[in-house]
């Protein structure tokens, strides 16, 4: 049996899966990135290694990375496939729901919609410029209210009178929320209002002008929040499917992509417990002036990101 690994390093959380030949997830983990993708990947990989049997680890044939830190981590662990998260999410979800036609994805700092027809992506959109209506917004507001983001859904269920909170912009939403809190709204009503605001923002941004058809799959970290799921259901008036592994579908997708791109060679899953140093510098090697990220493994240059030619490597 061959095994494949997919790692999804997002802005807020880092996810990893080990799958077998039949695309079953045999090991997985989900941890916070804490703005340190290298540390998070170290912890994640060690946890995956701990959760896997020795036989699985000896038969890994491909490793893929996706998410916003895909290139950095991909280079450090020697990934065989590095792909963007939009494609990874689509592939992951299609593998579980071949009849899916709309994917709603809300992650830590971005949200997207993917429209699928006959298992082929025909349209997608991703939020631009700002993180309004994403997980980052929810978690920062949870902190303000003094609760854990995981508890939000418990509060949602208790609310009978959700506060109306502006959805367009995080800054306005926050001042709305403070105002509503100060005039005496209960915590659960504020939280229900926030969940609705996320949905409102999403529908304003993405659904306008698009036909949303069944089957709808909701995924990404925010899909674990039942409040948002319920709010989506009532807003769209449609059934919303949330997979039990909905937060892992990106990682699953990249594992599947890695599997299909595998060259049939064994590869070992490990991340050395040494210091990786990152340095960003504008290269003066030619007139392109690329912003190059140099990755050092201890003191040795491991690789670079962002360069358009090889001049930067001799020109540090």
């Amino acid at each position: 049996m061959r095994y494949y690994v997919g790692i999804d390093i997002g802005s807020i959380s880092t996810k990893g899966v080990v799958i077998d030949e039949n695309n079953n997830i045999v090991a997985s983990d989900y941890i916070w990135t804490n703005a340190s993708p290298i540390d998070a990947s170290k912890r994640l990989i060690n946890s995956l290694i701990k959760k896997s049997k020795k036989e699985w680890l000896e038969n890994i044939y491909a490793i893929g990375t996706t998410g916003s830190a895909r290139k950095l981590i991909g280079k450090i662990i020697g990934a065989t496939s590095i792909k963007n998260e939009i494609t990874a999410h689509a592939v992951g979800t299609i593998s579980k729901y071949p009849d899916v036609s709309t994917i709603i994805e809300i992650g830590g700092q971005d949200s997207k919609i993917i429209i699928i027809k006959n298992s082929v992506v025909i349209d997608y959109a991703m939020n631009t410029l700002c993180a309004a209506g994403t997980g980052a917004f929810l978690s920062s507001q949870a902190k303000r209210l003094g609760i854990e983001v995981e508890q939000m859904q418990n509060y949602y269920e208790k609310s009978n009178n959700p506060a109306k909170i502006a959805a367009r912009c995080t800054v306005f939403a926050e001042s709305d929320m403070i105002h509503k809190a100060q005039i005496g709204y209960k915590k659960e009503d504020l939280i229900a209002g926030l969940c609705n605001a996320i949905v409102e923002n999403y529908t304003n941004n993405f659904i306008r002008g698009r036909r949303i058809e069944d089957k709808i799959v909701f995924q990404g970290g925010v899909s674990r929040n039942n409040g948002v799921v319920e709010s989506f259901k009532s807003k769209l008036n449609k059934d919303i499917h949330v997979d039990k592994d909905s937060h892992l579908l990106g990682a699953l997708g990249i594992a599947l992509i890695a599997k299909s791109e595998s060259r049939g060679e064994r590869i070992s899953l490990n991340i050395k417990d040494i210091e990786y140093r990152i340095r960003e510098k504008e290269c003066k090697g030619c007139s392109n002036n690329c912003e190059v990220v140099y990755i050092y493994e201890d003191e040795e240059l491991l690789d670079t990101i962002g360069n358009r030619c090889e001049n930067c490597k001799s020109n540090i």
Binding site: N84, I86, T87, V121, I122, D123, Y124, T128, E291, G306
Partner: peptide
Amino acid sequence: LNSDTGFQTRVEAFIDMLEMR
């Protein structure tokens, strides 16, 4: 913009989509 990552992600995904189609 100071970072190209967001743009590259979208272009990559767009091209993946074109290829799938």
